[in-house]
Design a protein around this nucleic acid. Structure first.
Length: 571
RNA sequence: CGGGAUGUAGCGCAGUCUGGUAGCGCACUUGAAUGGGGUUCAAGGGGCCGGAAGUUCGAAUCUUCUCAUCCCGACCA
């Protein structure tokens, strides 16, 4: 690739509508251009990087026994009617009618199409398991596209679907995909964690999200410093504190005029937030519920929603609180309250805690669950914090930010039942396929790689997913010797399948340095003044800033060794 | 969909309040010098001031409507 001939429109300044670093750098580096909100063109460098990720995915999916196919992007509404998602999916599904007035949509995902394909062509357990995937452009009409490739409306995704005859087989397939995903992101050269995700009603450990760790990530990842435990906030648990051991004291009512917030009450009563239980009122499908939590904890709404089995929950406003309890917020408590009550696990461990008296301007001391009040249910409904310990090994937990780039999920029979996709088992009984689905955001992975790896000068790609491995700077195109050396090194790279970009533009060295750093090619070769002096060529490593000066005739071998080492991250 | 903001050259912005020849920096073209971290000088090209309707002798500027984009929130295998 010759820089002088390629479409690499770099910019000194980034457009004002770019907010996150990957978006800015990809625009500045000439990787992408926006066509419309959430819709981008991939320029040669951007596409090259995307292709690298795709290639790794293809290799690892093949290794795991999956087959690639390509499904239509335009899908008829009938199938979506059949699965019930034509109604359910909402406005994110872009619908339209064709000239025959038939309703269609752009595929945001392909469960319906793949299930239809399989039900029409697979009829026996002998043909199972089957694992199919595609790499394709998806369209989701996001409410609010943002952050460039991180949350676009049109994006490239690998989506895979598995069909098994038995639960056990489905679990084995799941495990294989889990392994494949680890290999994929490892080979991409990314720091990531596989986290347990909320799998709704299915439960168990059959949903994992693959999170690329980056400070700018949208999601919070809880990870154990000691063992491999990791989960997202909706799912993360903490080791439960031991039951407190002390004698119950007599319940005591104290006046706490005007003290409503946890901090104010604790201050006034001279206790720690850990010794207080707060009462929050939630509206669960329209009905009020009192939620009891330790003073220093916060509600995790997804957990609460799962515990309550509610479709929709939200914090009650002041009026709803008063209507439900007759007490202004700040003094709420479970004692004597008639509404449904749930308590966090930690509350069940506490003895002699302070709590609202359910009466304006009063709190209770030495309250105790069971003795003074009852709750309908208990469970883990709080956010894990950095002060908590690992539920598996009791090691300390840390909270980091992550970008979701992959998600594997055991679907079960939801779609096969809805679409009547069945096979005959070895008893001759008709059974629905047991399905799994496995996604990777390809374009998002590239963006995540940049979020994770960049500095003030630009992107820093891991070698396996960089658009190319080496950029050779001819720092003086006027000078025949320098040009000769640069061209000959470039030729050696071409001959030996090392992907190189040669900057042969008639530009000043400063511009070439800046552009090379911006576009983030892992190895940069400088051929200029110093070559004229002593026939030495400099090789600069983008990630570390380290510069090697090697004799011209050794330059290629040095590059080759370095590249093969950096590319060889295969497990 | 609620709240907020912005649309002026490829990019970044000024000009709008107070109506009167459309500007600046970068990028681009030409020439010269320069040539290891976005160099310098000179001369150029490039605009339906997002769109429509109005007010006015006259609108980038005032009014109304509209379209688009971005931010915060809600939402998100």
């Amino acid at each position: 690739m010759r820089f002088s001939k390629m479409l690499i429109p770099t910019m000194k300044e980034s457009p004002s509508d770019a907010e996150v670093v990957s978006h800015k750098l990809m625009l500045r580096g000439g990787y992408i251009r926006k066509l419309s909100s959430g819709i981008y063109s991939y320029l040669p460098l951007g596409l090259a990087s995307i292709r690298k990720v795709e290639r790794i995915i293809q290799e690892e999916m093949t290794r795991a026994g999956a087959q690639e196919l390509l499904l239509p992007m335009v899908q008829p509404s009938d199938l979506w009617q059949e699965s019930g998602r034509w109604q359910k999916y909402g406005a994110e599904l872009l619908r339209f009618t064709d000239r025959h007035n038939r309703e269609s949509c752009l595929g945001p995902t392909h469960e319906e199409v793949i299930t239809d394909l399989v039900r029409k062509n697979i009829h026996s357990y002998r043909e199972l398991p089957l694992n199919l995937y595609q790499i394709q452009t998806k369209f989701r009409d996001e409410i609010r596209p943002r952050f460039g490739l991180m949350r676009g409306r049109e994006f490239i995704m690998k989506d895979g679907y598995s069909f098994d005859a038995s639960e056990k087989g489905a679990e084995e397939t799941y495990a294989k995909m889990n392994t494949a995903y680890h290999r994929i992101f490892e080979r991409c050269g990314l720091k990531f964690r596989a986290v347990e995700a909320d799998s709704g009603s299915i439960g168990g450990s059959f949903s994992h999200e693959f999170m690329v760790l980056a400070d700018t990530g949208e999601d919070t990842v809880v990870a154990c410093k000691n063992c491999s435990y990791a989960a997202n906030m909706e799912k993360a648990q903490a080791a439960v504190s031991p039951q407190e051991q002390q004698d119950m004291l007599d319940l005591q009512k104290v006046e706490t005029p005007g003290k409503r917030k946890v901090a104010a009450v604790c201050d006034f009563l001279n206790i720690n937030p850990q010794d207080l239980v707060k009462t929050l009122i939630y509206m669960a499908d329209g009905a009020p519920v009192a939620v009891l939590l330790r003073g220093d904890h916060e509600v995790q709404e997804v957990k609460l929603q799962n515990l309550l089995g509610a479709d929709e929950i939200r914090l009650a406003d002041d009026k709803e609180v008063f209507d439900a309890t007759g007490v202004p917020s700040g003094y709420l408590g479970p004692v004597g309250s008639q509404i449904r009550k749930v308590a966090d696990l930690e509350v069940t461990r506490m003895i002699n805690f302070a709590i609202g008296a359910n009466e304006k301007n009063f709190h209770l001391l030495n309250a105790n669950l069971h003795r003074d009040f009852k709750v309908e249910s208990t469970g883990d409904i709080r956010m894990v914090t950095e002060h908590d310990n690992c539920p598996k090994c009791n090691g300390s937990l840390e909270l980091t930010r992550g970008i979701e780039v992959g998600h594997i999920f055991k679907l079960g029979t939801t779609y096969s039942i809805a679409l009547k996709a069945t096979f005959l088992d070895n008893q001759g009984d008709e059974k629905p396929f047991i399905m799994g689905c496995y996604g990777i955001g390809v374009s998002r992975t590239v963006a995540a790689a940049i979020e994770q790896n960049h500095d003030k000068d630009g992107m820093i790609f891991p070698m396996p997913i960089a658009p190319c491995q080496v950029i050779i700077l001819n720092l003086s195109t006027q000078d025949e010797e320098i040009t000769g050396a640069a061209e000959s090194l470039y030729q050696s790279c071409l001959d030996n399948k090392i992907e190189a970009l040669i900057d042969d533009r008639d530009e000043r060295p400063g511009i070439k340095f800046k552009d090379a750093d911006l576009i983030g090619i892992p190895l940069r070769v400088n051929i200029g003044k110093n070559f004229s002096k002593d026939r030495h060529i400099e090789i600069k490593i983008r990630s570390t800033g380290e510069t090697l000066s090697v004799p011209a005739d050794e330059a290629f071998e040095t590059i080759r060794t370095f590249v093969s080492k950096a590319m060889n991250t295969t497990i």
